Amino acid sequence: MRADARRNYSRLIEQARIAFTEFGVDASLDEIARRAGVASGTLYRHFPTRLDLVEAVLAEQVTELVDLGRRLLTVEDENDALLTWLRAALLHALTYRGLAAAVMSSALDTGGEPASTWHAEMFEVGAALLARARQSGGVVSEADAADVLKMVGAIAWAAQDSPDSSAQADRLFNLLVNGLRRAD
């Protein structure tokens, strides 16, 4: 990438992060381009879709979340490892208003298949953590990784517009966790 293209890319990411914080992931792409001092065509050359831009803005966070999941795969308490990662995934989904809905919508558009590389990596590590917890007997055998991750996204979606979104997300998350626990 040429130096000017790298600068434009960096400015677009910076301005998208600011706009997503202010307006959520549905922020105007043309406004992001304007704030970055580039034409809309430049934005679309770098990011053909809104999801491409969202992914670029969240790349570092997603990498950290996937790395956390991989580290948790070595933790002895499988149930605690799963719950720690699911809570981190929920906090990630709450990063920007509309993020959970955008990811869920893109998954629906692709027939439930991961919509992106980072989505696939998150699904893979989440599925591995859930499988370990199921094998240890702490999670109901019916728990399906796709369903559990959709529920985490749904919790973020439901809580995002609540006046106390953090408390709402905690209440809903605890309901999910209680539903996953295997009754002895």
Rank of each mutant, 00 (worst) to 15 (best):
P163V: 13
D170A: 15
A159M: 10
D147E: 14
N178I: 03
I32Q: 10
F23G: 11
Q160H: 14
D80S: 03
R45S: 13
D144E: 12
R6P: 02
M1H: 12
A5E: 14
L86W: 04
R35H: 03
V103T: 09
D67A: 08
H46P: 08
L175R: 12
P48A: 11
E113D: 15
L12A: 09
R134F: 11
A3T: 07
H46Q: 12
T42E: 12
A101R: 14
E113R: 15
V57M: 07
E31M: 11
G41T: 13
Y44W: 12
L83M: 10
E124P: 01
G137T: 13
G24L: 06
D67Y: 01
L91I: 02
L43Y: 06
V54Q: 04
M1T: 12
D67H: 03
V57H: 01
L12N: 06
N178D: 14
T49K: 04
S105C: 10
R87E: 12
L53D: 05
A93L: 00
L99E: 08
S136P: 06
L86H: 08
A133N: 05
A36P: 06
L29Q: 14
R50V: 11
A169E: 06
A154N: 07
M122I: 00
V54A: 12
L73P: 04
A33Q: 04
A102M: 11
A39Y: 10
H46S: 09
E60Q: 08
G41I: 10
H92Y: 04
A120V: 00
I13C: 11
T84F: 02
T63I: 07
S105N: 13
V125S: 02
L91V: 04
R34T: 08
L83S: 08
T110C: 10
E64R: 10
D161C: 12
A131T: 10
H119V: 08
G137Y: 09
Y9R: 11
A167T: 11
L68G: 04
L130A: 03
A81I: 06
A3E: 09
V125P: 01
V139T: 13
H46R: 11
P114N: 11
M122K: 01
G112R: 06
L65S: 05
L51A: 13
S141L: 14
Q61I: 01
A39T: 11
A133L: 00
R45P: 05
A81D: 05
Q15P: 06
L68M: 11
L73Y: 01
G179D: 02
S165P: 15
V54I: 15
R71P: 01
V75T: 07
L108R: 14
A145G: 09
D164K: 14
V140I: 13
T110N: 15
K150G: 07
L90C: 01
A88R: 02
W85F: 13
N174T: 13
R50F: 08
R97H: 04
L68V: 02
G179W: 02
T74R: 11
R71D: 01
R134V: 14
D4L: 08
A5W: 06
R71H: 02
V103N: 04
R71M: 02
R70T: 07
F47W: 07
N8K: 10
Y44N: 05
D67P: 00
V177N: 05
V177C: 04
